[in-house]
Design a binder for these strands. Structure first.
Length: 139
DNA sequence: GCCAACGTTGGC
DNA sequence: GCCAACGTTGGC
């Protein structure tokens, strides 16, 4: 199983919205960056991803699971971009602030730290474990 | 509000 | 194909 991290502005799409949806399953739409698209395509059913809120209070707020692999993004007229369906499976007991991630030595190599603009990115198994611990979540 | 990093556009 | 100018994202 591979691990990932996806970002959203809570004003656009928040963890609470996703969590409160019936079945907690929603498509992840609106990705318009080639590198991010490649990462979406690489996701397999059963893979898990951190949900990160960008903006005013940047922090990791929960875990999503891929329930449907990449397919055409319903919000894209050109047919070039893709979406995956995520199920929200676990909220963070303690959201992990980006500032704390930056201060954690073993997480300094995260894409989140090095390339803050990439909205869909891979996470290593070690990083996954560390952040789950910080958030009070089961890995 | 500012700035860094990155992506895109368009002139040459 | 290169590069400057500009736009966008996202952290601080």
């Amino acid at each position: 199983m591979n691990h990932w991290l996806v970002k959203s502005e809570p004003d656009e799409w928040s963890w609470d919205e996703h969590w409160s949806k019936k079945g907690r399953v929603e498509p992840w739409t609106g990705v318009r960056n080639h590198q991010a698209k490649q990462n979406l395509i690489a996701m397999k059913k059963g893979d898990r991803a951190f949900f990160h809120h960008s903006g005013k209070t940047p922090q990791i707020v929960g875990i999503l699971e891929v329930v449907r692999a990449s397919h055409p993004d319903p919000t894209d007229d050109t047919g070039k971009w893709v979406s995956v369906d995520f199920k929200a499976i676990q909220p963070a007991k303690h959201p992990v602030a980006l500032a704390d991630i930056r201060q954690t030595k073993t997480l300094a190599g995260m894409v989140l730290v090095k390339n803050s603009r990439l909205s869909v990115q891979p996470v290593t198994a070690a990083q996954w474990k560390t952040i789950c611990k910080m958030a009070g979540m089961k890995p």
